[in-house]
Design a protein around this nucleic acid. Sequence first.
DNA 1: ACAAAAATGTACTTGCCGGTACATTCTCAA
DNA 2: TTGAGAATGTACCGGCAAGTACATTTTTGT
Lengths: 212, 212
Amino acid sequence: MSIIPTSRAVSAPNRAKTPKGQATRARIVDAAAALVFEEGVAGTSLDDVGAAARVGKSQIYHYFADKSSLISEVVTRQTIAVLAGQEPHISRLDNWGSWAAWRDQLVREQDENHCTGGCPLGSIANELADTDEDARAVLVDSFDQWERAFADGITRMKAAGALRADADAASLASAVLAAVQGGLLLCKTRKSTKPLEASLDASIAYLRTFAP
Amino acid sequence: MSIIPTSRAVSAPNRAKTPKGQATRARIVDAAAALVFEEGVAGTSLDDVGAAARVGKSQIYHYFADKSSLISEVVTRQTIAVLAGQEPHISRLDNWGSWAAWRDQLVREQDENHCTGGCPLGSIANELADTDEDARAVLVDSFDQWERAFADGITRMKAAGALRADADAASLASAVLAAVQGGLLLCKTRKSTKPLEASLDASIAYLRTFAP
DNA sequence: ACAAAAATGTACTTGCCGGTACATTCTCAA
DNA sequence: TTGAGAATGTACCGGCAAGTACATTTTTGT
């Protein structure tokens, strides 16, 4: 019954014209990203964001059209952070050792976070996919990038003969991403890394069944 | 040793003392469940719930301590609905045909929903796991039940010789549930059933690798 | 029938939140 | 120096949502 906003702010003009302005704008996005990760989109007020960024609310509206625009920016920022957080392994998933190291890093990070927060992108996707077309579009792009990292590794392994030719890189990559997301959701719900480990181990083991 | 934490919502006294009261209470939970599925917890106001249930807000507070208690009730209600929605297959996952039928039903349902909403339990878990201990406890129980259905099927297949003895029912079941949740999240984000299909197919195919 | 208990309706409070208006301060280039 | 554009601060508005108070109607047990 909700009215889904049809207007898409294609590419919001960056209203920060000076280095100082850019820095302030970046502080706002950083603060918003951290708060959204902890409290969710609905749970994060712009007053909170302003306080965390040591900035008045008028500043937020000076640099962003509305809350939705700011959130979209948060998603692009978090996409970079999430992918960077999986380096160096995610760029080198062309051998089984890298897959294992990537898996271990993901599990360790959740352990250090005491299984809170889950995936910054998955959480936002879950909250906004059906109600914010702009955010959804950015999130689709984010997941595409993430998935491509997996697909690239799989493709290179096929080329190197480490995986058979009948391994479908695209759908396998999609399944791996789903395993990550589902594993993180169960991890933060059960407050245990076990479900994440089971999910990642299963998807990597399935990949291994395509070894020659 | 450890006292299994029962949610306050479940153990709290049901204040509906008459059939009429029970009916009203049930109407409230039903309306809340539907609205939460569409708009999320934060996006659902108690005024909306009251309007949908044709009930004053005082009624809601007559039957529930607060919003959180109502939501916990919604989770238990949705758990029943989600599991029932996967019948008859989910109770008979002791042969490959049932797994396929179960998978097809899940995909078809998302297709009919135009890939909106995702999993009613997963969405709530994502929103509340870190902020509402009561709801989290109920959700853990929900996921346990769901997973147990998978584990039961796997165990029966092992007993029947359709799966090898080294197939770990518990962790495989956990991986399947993660695949469902991750697949549904990507499904509703990408507005396509493809990621869900890839995820479910991969996890079932992995199961099959444990066939003798 | 009739009190007691349960169910229900109306109206209100309080606080927060997205968004706006507008004045003021800062910065830099001509 | 100065003035125009950029950055920032303060104050406010309207609406909504959780939760409360309390009166009224309906049902139930005896």
